[in-house]
């Protein structure tokens, strides 16, 4: 990073700090009732207290666990199903339109059905998260497979490669940017659905924590939870970008 960019960064942080100071001012002057709006000092104290007593660690771990399992299951199933559908023209004409029809369905609407089938359990949460997170990945995989340069398939045919070899050696690598973009989208979906399921089913996690804090009007704890959720969203998306960068390095080099 050069000097000018660094200076801009510092200035930008200063502006953010200014907003936090403004927030503190509003809270200290009690312009908004402290029942709804704790100052950053109280939110920070709640964060420190939560972490030192271990409460927040276990809630954070719970949310991350729901998110990770659901997302991983969705990634594996989404890429596998997407590969099966995407690698066959017949499957694409018969199945893909139904998937396109289902895509705009708000996935959270599946929650009541999942509750009716599985009850208010961990399994229900994992099912819902995986079901919601699978769409972007599966559709991206189908799209990526359909968009593979046709000449590569011709090469595969003249080399008499098997269908599996075509998938693993040609289609998956060339569809990987699409697939990774889909996985990044799903990460956000997985976080949101984790929170919703925790709220509904009372599962151990940050969603449940913020709801309980709100019910008890402990606004500092509530803000601490929301800040942690924001951090979770930020860190996971940064980690995903880094992984994307790493995994697609060969492509950038080729260009």
């Amino acid at each position: 990073m050069n000097r000018a960019a660094l200076l801009w960064r510092v200035a930008s942080f200063a502006v953010a700090a200014g907003f936090v100071a403004l927030w503190q001012l509003i809270a200290s002057l009690k312009l908004v009732s402290p029942v709804f709006l704790p100052g950053p000092d109280r939110a920070w104290a709640a964060l420190v207290r939560g972490f030192s007593s271990g409460d927040l660690w276990s809630k954070l771990a719970g949310t991350l666990e729901h998110m990770a399992y659901g997302w991983l299951a969705a990634s594996i199933a989404g890429i596998a199903i997407g590969a099966i559908i995407g690698s066959s023209r017949r499957m694409r004409t018969y199945v893909a339109p139904s998937l396109e029809f289902l895509r705009p369905l708000p996935v959270s609407a599946i929650i009541p059905v999942a509750i009716a089938m599985l009850g208010l359990t961990q399994a229900m949460a994992l099912f819902v998260i995986a079901f919601g997170a699978i769409w972007p990945i599966m559709l991206a995989t189908i799209h990526g497979f359909a968009a593979v340069e046709p000449r590569l398939y011709e090469v595969a045919r003249s080399l008499q490669m098997s269908r599996l070899a075509v998938i693993f050696k040609i289609a998956l690598p060339s569809a990987s940017p699409d697939i990774l973009a889909g996985m990044r989208l799903s990460l956000t979906v997985a976080l949101i659905l984790s929170v919703v399921c925790e709220i509904l089913a009372g599962l151990d996690g940050l969603g449940h924590w913020v709801l309980l804090s709100a019910r008890a009007f402990r606004s500092a704890d509530l803000f601490a939870g929301v800040i942690l959720l924001g951090l979770t969203g930020y860190v996971t998306s940064v980690a995903m970008s880094l992984a994307e960068h790493r995994l697609l390095a060969w492509q950038a080099a080729r260009r």
């Binding site: 953010a16 029942v35 709804f36 956000t188 976080l191 949101i192 929170v195 919703v196 709220i199 940050l206 969603g207 913020v210 709801l211 804090s213 709100a214 009007f217 606004s219 509530l222 803000f223 939870g225 929301v226 959720l229 924001g230 951090l231 969203g233 930020y234 998306s237």
Partner: peptide, 16 residues
């Protein structure tokens, strides 16, 4: 800093 907050996490704040 604000953008990654999942919208649904604001639910309890909006609620109270």
């Amino acid at each position: 800093a604000i953008r990654p907050i999942p919208s649904i996490a604001l639910l309890p704040i909006a609620l109270i």
